[in-house]
Design a protein around this nucleic acid. Structure first.
Lengths: 157, 157
DNA sequence: GGCAACTCGATGACATGTCAACAACACCGG
DNA sequence: CCGGTGTTGTTGACATGTCATCGAGTTGCC
């Protein structure tokens, strides 16, 4: 085992900063979302993904892949959201094993009520704190890291 | 309620990218850490914070504050790590209510064994994918967001 | 058609995180 | 010194996430 290459001062600052920002942002955004809309972040993400879909419905596995969740986790979470009337399950017409998650009217109202405030919070705590160059850099850098972690399906600079 | 200000294309790219990068990085780093060192990320963070301390010991509340964890969460987690022999609890000499979390020799060996590989993974998946300018930007931007979320104890640019 | 191998989603056991309540103690003003 | 008030850490109940397993259904190959 070679001598480990530790992080230099700039790199350490970036890594620690990233993690602290991450944690603080999470806590604050989750807090506001719950207070203002009665939704957890996972709830919001599910509803948001569903609502961006043409038919307001997605195969369970398709939704799980988009969210980078395990099927098990999504299945449990959907059960809970179903209890609250935000989504329903339907059988899949083309695959007897399959399950389709469908946004209910109540679910749609919930996201629509939550979205403006949530976007505002994202702006207030993150986007509006950044210069346009930083926003661009964050986007670019994220894409590159994502590409690396997913076997770079897109070209890398 | 005014018309909500949605995110423009660049901002949306940054926000979605940030969240996706976050999730993928977490999954991969946690996977490698568990496989190579048998530690979860929370385990590693606790051990790492303790090992950076002069006496390898911290008051429970001090540690919780540094990690941005609730005392309850930390108390539960320390109990589990104590079962595994990574840390111990001692009474606090100066405060009868207090509890001090102490790194055991086994705990110290565990972080020291885990650290090189973990740092290498952080490099491989994040730091080494970034240009020096991006590293600097990430550090700067994080500090500014952190400052905002914590009532800006440091000056803001 | 029929069988082997795989995929889909559900489920239960368990690990982890959250929340409210509590006991023990510290601190402070009188 | 004492009593009210706040802090510290633990606990138990509950919510959430993970993992292994399973039944059902699909797919491909012969």
């Amino acid at each position: 085992m070679d001598e480990p290459r530790w992080l230099d001062e700039q790199q350490d600052r970036a890594w620690r900063g990233y993690r602290r920002m991450r944690r603080l942002l999470d806590l604050e955004l989750a807090r506001e979302l719950m207070q203002d809309a009665g939704l957890s972040e996972p709830d919001y993400d599910v509803l948001s993904d569903l609502s961006e879909t043409p038919e307001q419905r997605l195969r369970l596995s398709e939704l799980a892949d988009r969210m980078l969740w395990s099927r098990s986790r999504l299945s449990h979470h959907i059960s809970r959201m179903q209890q609250r009337g935000l989504v329903t399950r339907e059988e899949c017409a083309t695959d007897g094993r399959g399950s389709v998650v469908v946004l209910t009217p109540a679910g749609r109202r919930a996201v629509e009520a939550a979205a403006p405030g949530h976007v505002a919070a994202v702006r207030r705590h993150l986007i509006d704190r950044l210069t346009p160059a930083e926003v661009a850099a964050l986007g670019t850098l994220s894409q590159r890291v994502i590409g690396h972690l997913t076997g770079r399906p897109e070209a890398e600079g």
